[in-house]
């Protein structure tokens, strides 16, 4: 892996909202077909990181390369070409509620005119089967689905265009522990099946341990620790220890009034 250039390479990324500095010189590499999970507390800028890579937010300075190509400050047309390689699972599923599940799943394919509407339905049913959903779900609207089913439809949508990179934004948030594990299993299975590179953000350690090859901890706008999943319990980093054991006491100070 060290020979091939990383799929995503982030250097010295800065982003501030007004006076509030969110990312402060972040460096991160994600190798080809690797699954990296970024952990960190709420409001530490995990979502900002992913949205910057996707171009939904404009970083103040720093470099983001996807496949060796600089994506910050890209023209919209080139940006779209990069985003074509990318799938994203949003925290709240973000399904289009005016469209039935099958049209949600194949939305990207239809938008790129890679399939006709007639073919799209069959593809959608196949993708839904991949995430363990029956064919009947295809005709339901997002409002008629449970939270776990919405997440799975959203997962099917994220992988529908066979992306090279998949982003997972808090994939297990708002799900019960069993459904969370089902989603984790699906993420592992599917990223392996399509051979995709995965970058996830979460604060759910059970999920992080399950889906990550490598874990990176985001604190104070920087990656303060990164290493293989197996090594996280012996990181020797007091910040990481505090986070993975979920202790209120430690070097990380939450902004709560005592």
């Amino acid at each position: 892996m060290s020979q091939t250039p990383p799929k995503i390479r982030i250097r010295d990324l800065h982003k501030a909202f007004g006076p509030k500095v969110v990312l402060d010189g972040l460096d991160l590499d994600v190798g080809v077909a690797e699954s990296v999970v970024v952990i960190g507390g709420s409001g530490t800028g995990k979502s900002v990181l992913i949205k910057s890579i996707l171009g939904l937010l404009k970083p103040d300075r720093g470099s983001i390369q996807v496949d060796g190509e600089e994506v910050t400050g890209m023209k919209p047309g080139d940006r779209e070409a990069v985003n074509r390689k990318v799938g994203m699972l949003f925290q709240g599923a973000a399904l289009f509620d005016s469209l039935p599940a099958w049209e949600n799943v194949t939305f990207g394919l239809l938008a790129q005119k890679r399939v006709t509407r007639a073919q799209a339905r069959d593809i959608a049913v196949a993708k839904l089967a991949q995430v363990g959903l029956e064919a009947e779900v295809a005709d339901l609207y997002p409002a008629e689905l449970s939270g776990g089913m919405q997440k799975r439809v959203a997962l099917a949508r994220a992988i529908a265009a066979d992306p090279e990179i998949i982003f997972f934004d808090e994939p297990t948030t708002g799900l019960d522990p069993i459904m969370a594990d089902v989603i984790n299993d699906l993420i592992v299975k599917i990223t392996r099946e399509v051979g995709a590179t995965a970058l996830s953000i979460t604060h759910d350690m059970a999920s992080a341990r399950k889906i990550a090859n490598r874990i990176a901890m985001l604190y104070d706008g920087k990656i303060i620790w990164a290493g293989p999943t197996a090594g996280i319990d012996a990181s020797g980093n007091p910040f990481v220890d505090q986070f993975i054991h979920g202790r209120a006491e430690g070097p990380i100070k939450m902004a709560v009034r005592k």
Partner: peptide
């Protein structure tokens, strides 16, 4: 609900 962001990631302006 991030549906507008989702559009962008699905190569739709």
């Amino acid at each position: 609900t991030e549906q507008i962001d989702a559009l962008t990631t699905l190569s739709t302006n």
